Simulated assay, not measured.
Amino acid sequence: MIITISLFAGLADRIGTSSLKFSCKDTEMNAGRLKRLLAEAYPDASSLIAVSFVAVNQEYALDYQPISEQDEVALIPPVSGGEPMSEDKRAHESADGLFVITEDELSVEAVTAKVITANHGATLTFTGTTREMTGEQRTVHLEYEAYVPMALSKLRQIGAEIGEQWPGTLCAISHRIGRVDIAEASVVIAVSSPHRAGCYEASRYAIERLKQIVPIWKKESWEDGAEWKGHGLGPWDPSAPGILT
């Protein structure tokens, strides 16, 4: 059996490739066994493999989920990365245009305009920007990368969860990848709702859920080095259910 696996960030760095064709003697495979075999084959990366999640066909997989040679498989570490988009495809978006991943600068006004409607009395926009100082450490810039197709799928999932929990509420999210300089926006989340209470709640839910399940992370660069960073929200668990389940 030969399984093609997409790798990201520090995991890709340690193994030496972002696309691995992994050959094994097994005729049947599941996500848990794949991680164990990879850890044995790449002992220098075993600790990172152990805390990574397997994604099968753009969904996070439990250990017992079967895997075939035809599946789209990715191994996503707690800090992620990916390949830059080509010049002719700098942005990806959902069919309805509400969810976007792009290398281009973000427009707060453009994202907000997507959710403003005549029947909604409240609109909120959250903008996440690059902070220069964290304590005494100075950040030079950030680099965001993503497993793009799965990231878009998870952004759409967040929108669906919000629509179910707060009926009638609209959500649009745009997230940058690539280099994001100091004070530039990396994410814009716009939410509109008939009433302000639901709008506040849905906006907070969107950013917290994004940090929990969407495979987009950052590399923080300083004057004297760089490091892949996690979300800083405690244990990262993209398989965790939302408030709806």
Rank of each mutant, 00 (worst) to 15 (best):
E40G: 14
A74W: 05
A41W: 04
Q212S: 12
G225P: 03
E103Y: 09
F8P: 02
S6E: 10
V79K: 11
R204G: 13
G82W: 08
T130S: 02
V188R: 09
A206Y: 07
E105Y: 14
W166R: 09
A118C: 12
A197N: 12
A183K: 10
M150E: 08
A226Y: 14
K35F: 07
E145Y: 13
F99K: 04
E72I: 12
A183H: 13
Y60S: 11
I243K: 09
Y144F: 12
S46H: 00
I177F: 10
K218V: 03
I49D: 00
T27F: 08
W222H: 11
L38Y: 05
Q212L: 06
F126E: 01
E145C: 01
I15Q: 03
A74M: 10
S19R: 13
I158W: 07
M1K: 15
Q137K: 15
V187C: 04
T169N: 11
K219S: 10
E83M: 03
W222P: 13
N57T: 01
A50H: 14
E72S: 09
G198C: 15
Y147W: 15
K229D: 01
E223W: 14
K21R: 14
H120L: 01
V73R: 11
V100S: 07
L11F: 15
G232W: 12
A118V: 11
E145S: 14
T130G: 06
A160I: 06
Q70G: 00
A91D: 00
Y42I: 00
H120T: 09
K89F: 04
Y144Q: 05
L244N: 09
W217V: 00
W236C: 08
A50G: 05
K218E: 01
S153E: 01
Q157V: 00
A95R: 13
K25S: 03
Q137G: 06
E40V: 01
Q65R: 09
H231A: 11
Y147D: 07
R131Y: 07
I243Y: 02
A160Q: 04
E105L: 13
Q65Y: 03
G230F: 12
T129E: 12
S107H: 14
K154H: 10
Q212N: 04
I189R: 02
T17K: 03
A110E: 15
L124K: 10
A61K: 02
L233K: 12
P235I: 08
E143N: 12
S193I: 01
Q137F: 14
L210R: 05
A50P: 04
A95I: 10
L233G: 15
Y144S: 05
W222R: 15
A172C: 05
S68M: 00
I207P: 02
G178M: 09
Q70C: 02
L37H: 03
S47A: 04
E28W: 12
L152D: 07
P66S: 09
P241V: 06
G242S: 11
S186W: 04
G16Y: 13
W222G: 07
M85P: 00
A39R: 10
S68C: 14
A190D: 02
L48F: 00
A197C: 04
L152K: 05
R156W: 09
V148W: 11
E72W: 15
I177G: 05
E164K: 03
L210P: 02
D237G: 01
D181L: 13
Q137I: 15
N57Q: 05
G10D: 11
D44P: 02
S186T: 09
C171F: 07
A197F: 08
A185Q: 01
